[in-house]
Amino acid sequence: MQSHPSYPILSGYLKKYPSAASSLFQTYNDITYAQQWLDVSVVDLGDEFKRAAIRGRRKMGAEDGGGVSEDFSYVFPCSLAEAFPYERLQKVFSSLGIEKMFMAVTSEDASIVYYKISAGIVKPPV
């Protein structure tokens, strides 16, 4: 892991939050290298959450006109074995000052599932 190009960027967070290190490392590398987001950075959520989130600008698909999103998106990495009650997720939204984010659920086999979640109840588009 120490020889990976992303290690110098993540090492402080991996050491500070060892229980969330695997999810952060896996998600950061997927967002940066596979999804090719731009302006990617790590946001320390502090001791209350004992983890960091990822912030960046998403590449848009052809159906969205291509290019790069002007707005920043946030990703909250966690493992499949963790549980996050609704109240705790609401605190994450509040802490980041956002209304929506992606939750990256990682597993031991290196797969990641992204869920787009919103603060509160949001009416789906018609």
Rank of each mutant, 00 (worst) to 15 (best):
M1D: 10
Q2V: 13
S3P: 06
H4I: 07
S6A: 14
Y7T: 05
Y7K: 11
P8S: 14
P8H: 09
G12S: 14
G12T: 13
Y13P: 01
L14G: 05
K16D: 07
K16M: 08
Y17S: 11
P18V: 11
P18H: 00
P18R: 02
A20T: 05
A20S: 15
A21K: 00
L24R: 09
F25T: 06
T27M: 10
T27K: 02
D30N: 15
I31V: 15
I31Q: 08
T32Q: 11
Q36N: 12
Q36E: 15
Q36V: 09
Q36L: 13
W37P: 00
S41N: 12
V43G: 12
D44C: 09
G46F: 12
D47T: 09
E48F: 12
E48I: 12
K50L: 15
R51E: 01
I54H: 08
R55S: 04
R55N: 03
G56K: 01
G56H: 06
R58V: 09
M60W: 00
M60H: 06
G61W: 02
G61A: 10
G61Q: 08
G66R: 10
G66L: 08
G67P: 05
G67Q: 05
S69P: 00
S69E: 05
D71Y: 06
F72W: 03
S73W: 02
S73H: 10
Y74G: 08
V75N: 00
V75C: 01
V75D: 02
F76S: 04
F76R: 07
F76Y: 13
P77V: 02
A83N: 14
P85S: 00
P85F: 07
P85V: 02
E87D: 08
R88T: 15
L89Q: 13
K91M: 11
K91L: 14
S95G: 02
S95A: 15
L96M: 08
L96Y: 07
K100Y: 13
F102P: 03
A104Y: 03
S107C: 08
D109G: 04
A110V: 10
I112V: 11
Y114E: 10
Y114R: 06
K116L: 15
K116G: 11
S118H: 15
A119H: 11
G120W: 13
V122I: 11
K123M: 14
V126A: 15
V126D: 14
V126Y: 07
